[in-house]
Amino acid sequence: MKKPSSSPPPVLTTALAASWLLLNQTLALGQIAFAALLALALARTTSALRPLRPRLRRMRTVPGLLLMVLTDITRSSFNVARIVLGLVGNRPVHAGFLDIPLELRDPHGLAALATIITATPGTVWVGLAPDGHSLTLHVLDLRDGIGWIHLIKTRYEQPLIRIFE
């Protein structure tokens, strides 16, 4: 099978080279050259495993999104900790499944969304509908379903659409 020759994917190659340098804790010239060669070779040999190339459109959105995710993780960690310790008063806590209509279609964007949702305590990704138009989550504190849908659509989905589509 003949592979279409293409330029190496820039983000993947840089990430591989950077992780080699981090692992060896060095910035020596020889190691940098070796890291570059290794990253290029790995990106080339594994390209058959990655049939889809992500198209990153607006990298400007990424730092803001990361900061937002970090604050959300901190906040919901404390919410979940409060529920575990029973510090919510007499309010009963209902956990449940929640369906969210989805506009994001790009597979890499969906993967990023899954990472964000699962890394945030209190929400776990359950699955995507076969047609890809809706997403099922499990939410620990399902008090306000519309609020959760609104939060995920505006805070995470819109930036991801801007980045990946």
Binding site: V80, V84, L85, T120, P121, H138, L140
Partner: peptide
């Protein structure tokens, strides 16, 4: 880890160790 022991059903228990693993 306490949540892993205390919470009542499996899907709820999924959420508790996430605190430890992320933050």
């Amino acid at each position: 880890a306490l949540g892993l022991v205390r919470l009542r059903d499996f899907p709820s228990r999924m959420h508790a160790p996430t605190i430890g693993t992320t933050l």
